[in-house]
Design a protein around this nucleic acid. Sequence first.
DNA 1: GTGAAAGCGCTAACAG
DNA 2: CTGTTAGCGCTTTCAC
Lengths: 328, 328
Amino acid sequence: MNVRRATIKDVAEAAGVGVATVSRVLSGGSASPETRERVLAVATQLDYRPSALGRNLRQQRAGGIGLLLPDITDSFYGRLADGVLSCARAAGEPVVLGTTGDDPEREADQIGMLLEQGVERVVAVPTGDAEVWAPTLRAGLTTVFAHRSAPGHGGVPTVLADDRGGVRTAVDYLTGLGHRHIAYLGGPGQEQRVSAFLEALGALADPDLVVSARGSRDSAYAAAAGLFQRRPDLTAVLAGGNLLGEVAVLAARELDLRVPKDLSLVMFDDVPWAELCAPPLTVIAQPAEDIGYRAAELVLRAGGRRPRGVLLPTELIVRGSCGPRRAP
Amino acid sequence: MNVRRATIKDVAEAAGVGVATVSRVLSGGSASPETRERVLAVATQLDYRPSALGRNLRQQRAGGIGLLLPDITDSFYGRLADGVLSCARAAGEPVVLGTTGDDPEREADQIGMLLEQGVERVVAVPTGDAEVWAPTLRAGLTTVFAHRSAPGHGGVPTVLADDRGGVRTAVDYLTGLGHRHIAYLGGPGQEQRVSAFLEALGALADPDLVVSARGSRDSAYAAAAGLFQRRPDLTAVLAGGNLLGEVAVLAARELDLRVPKDLSLVMFDDVPWAELCAPPLTVIAQPAEDIGYRAAELVLRAGGRRPRGVLLPTELIVRGSCGPRRAP
DNA sequence: GTGAAAGCGCTAACAG
DNA sequence: CTGTTAGCGCTTTCAC
């Protein structure tokens, strides 16, 4: 049953050459056309596949890309992962996936595991700050951050959607509709957006209207419901992700707030169901897949000089969840 | 910058013992309490992490779990992956993720890659049939299928939701509502469900009402729209997945079919947005995460005798997308 | 209970 | 252009 795979030695013997020659031929080194052909033929015939195990040990690194995500069940991260996977597949590199649940400790564990595996390239949506990433970077990991930057790590190349621009567009849209009391319902790691939100609001800014939930659905729902109850003067809300958007419409329904009549809603991240929702949700689309693809590209191009970062555009897609401010 | 990690040799020297002793201590072998303590102390102090590279080569296998999925952006597979990840994390095993796009050729490529990496355990939602999996299994891969079984491979342990039961329940529900012309809108690898569907319908069965889409959204939409136009006598649809359900409501809207007045809809797979949809979708919930977790469990318990398969229950969740048959 | 040594498959340095 | 050889870090006999 369990057939031993052919090794480089088998190929060398069968081809009547040394192992080094086989290695050279297979990695595109110099060899006489004649030898090359013979080796290739034998390799094919023996169905030889070079063992990554031997190579990895020899080169002291495993190749492949480590991918660290807060939550793979979140559609946004699913699409981001898909982008990383396409790039990796094009490059023939395996992807090792780990989830952090937005928990820095768990993130550190996962990094440790990748290190142990010899993985040297990581694409991460970081959760921890400098504290947790510093040792990692010092250990020689090639790292690219995606979607979020880690506080205090300007040095790591980062691929981001233009969150600030997106927030500004959404806020302008909402204030243009007459809204004056606008809330931001956010999740972990959205400091950038919050600051952009406050900034865009200017004189209208009200820190009490900025709410941050933990990653879980329950916590998000509680945050939304709490906000809506606490501030009946609220007429518009910007939800910082599809999970937050979802609980926002749920909480609004529960409290008999009509969207968009009583409450206007803009959600970060365009998801297929936004169109199916009642009412269809106005969203800020983010190029999740591109983010992943670009990040993977960057991490694979480790040798050359890499740009410090990439900023991808967002887009406001107007559907039916926003209306003029309700009469007071 | 790039600091060399401590090796077993470093630890051995620092502790004044042989490398074999270090290895034994760290893998729970026998050693005098005294030696053990000293080795452990030195290891901690040196921040020693055994290199998986060395171990893998020595043991001729990489450990870890390979996970092969049709599409990681599909919420169902996202949740399945999450189940696999939790189990793997509990076991301290890395997970290598690959997507197949429901393409047998791509699936074969991914398998080849895993083999090359020395991965010996695979959890897969199979796309190819016996043809593509036979060599894999012969190569000694411990494989568990999840969510689907590969045609012609009774030998591989498989973790499934009770699709047949789910279909039967849905069909009974729909016929109980008076529906007589019920369609099944399916995707790749749903032969089981189709046969259960036809069977449950009995005399009502109409093969022309069974439509199968490729994996893509476009193809799914075309299939749904085509079906609705071709068969105006249709009053109910069972959609075989959340993507299919989504395009079904989109196509229905486009053709001015009211759900549930003109068309009743049951969708396989409960997703958070089913409740947000207008109308809220009646679904057959599948324990996606459990499927993944159980599959990972099985593949990790390679040594012992493994059950031939696991069947997990589905559940009909009635919401608002089904009504009595409209008057003819 | 412990150490010395072999060797997993591969690549790279060196000699021819 | 090609073969020989050392050695990556680890586990595992095999002696002691």
